[in-house]
Lab assay of single mutants.
Amino acid sequence: KTVHVDGVEYRFNNPEEADKFVKRLVKEKNGNVEVRGDTYHVE
């Protein structure tokens, strides 16, 4: 899984860790998540 945040790319081998990371980011930023294939885009 890959997570894109503000143009920075984070790669996770463990999908659960990627999910936790995304949830935390969305809370912090009050942002939205767009999923494209295996990539999460957080804005």
Rank of each mutant, 00 (worst) to 15 (best):
Y10K: 00
N14C: 11
D6N: 15
K20H: 11
D38P: 06
R24Y: 14
V33G: 05
L25W: 06
D19V: 08
F12I: 01
E34I: 15
K1M: 14
T2C: 13
E9F: 07
K20N: 13
T39W: 08
N14I: 03
N13R: 06
F21V: 02
G37R: 05
V35S: 05
E16S: 05
H4S: 12
K1N: 10
N32W: 15
E16M: 06
V26F: 11
G37W: 14
K29V: 12
K20F: 09
L25D: 04
E9W: 10
K27E: 13
A18H: 01
G37Y: 12
T2G: 01
G37V: 13
L25I: 12
V26Q: 12
V22F: 07
A18F: 07
D6F: 06
K1V: 15
R24P: 04
Y10M: 04
V33M: 04
R36Q: 08
T2Y: 07
E9T: 11
G31C: 15
R11M: 06
K29P: 05
T39H: 13
D38H: 04
G7E: 01
E34Q: 09
V35D: 05
N13L: 08
V42M: 07
G37T: 10
F12L: 00
K20E: 15
N14K: 03
E9M: 09
E34G: 06
G7A: 01
D19Q: 08
K20S: 13
N14V: 02
E16I: 05
G37K: 05
H41S: 09
H41C: 13
K27Q: 13
F21T: 02
E28A: 04
A18Q: 02
P15G: 06
T39Y: 07
P15W: 13
V22W: 05
R11I: 11
K29F: 14
G31H: 09
A18N: 00
F21H: 02
V3I: 09
K20I: 11
V42A: 07
V42D: 08
E9D: 06
V35W: 09
E28D: 11
K20Y: 09
E17T: 03
K29Y: 14
V8Y: 05
E43G: 10
R24V: 08
T39Q: 11
V8G: 01
E17R: 00
Y40S: 09
N13S: 13
R11K: 12
G37S: 06
V22A: 04
V33W: 09
F21K: 00
V26H: 08
V42N: 09
K27F: 09
V35Y: 11
H41F: 15
V5A: 03
K20G: 07
V42S: 06
E9H: 02
D19I: 14
K27Y: 10
E28K: 05
D19F: 10
E34K: 08
H4E: 10
V35R: 05
K27C: 15
K23F: 03
T39P: 07
A18G: 00
V35M: 10
D6T: 00
V22K: 04
V35N: 07
E17C: 13
F12E: 01
F12D: 01
E34W: 11
K27T: 09
K20D: 15
L25V: 09
F21A: 02
V3E: 01
P15E: 14
N13G: 06
R24F: 11
R11W: 13
D6W: 04
T2D: 01
H4N: 11
G31W: 14
D19M: 11
V5F: 11
V35P: 03
Y10Q: 01
Y40K: 07
Y40H: 06
D19C: 15
R24N: 13
E28W: 10
H4D: 02
V5Y: 12
F12P: 01
R36W: 08
R36L: 11
E43H: 13
F21Q: 02
K20P: 02
G31Q: 07
E28T: 05
V33Y: 08
R11C: 12
V8W: 03
E17M: 03
D19R: 08
V5K: 01
V8P: 00
V33A: 05
V8I: 09
N30L: 10
R24A: 14
Y40D: 10
V35G: 06
E16L: 04
Y40N: 05
V26Y: 10
K23D: 14
K23M: 10
V5Q: 00
N13P: 11
N13M: 09
V8K: 11
E28V: 05
R11V: 12
E28R: 03
G7K: 00
G31N: 08
R24D: 15
P15M: 08
A18T: 01
K29I: 11
G7M: 00
E43C: 15
V3F: 02
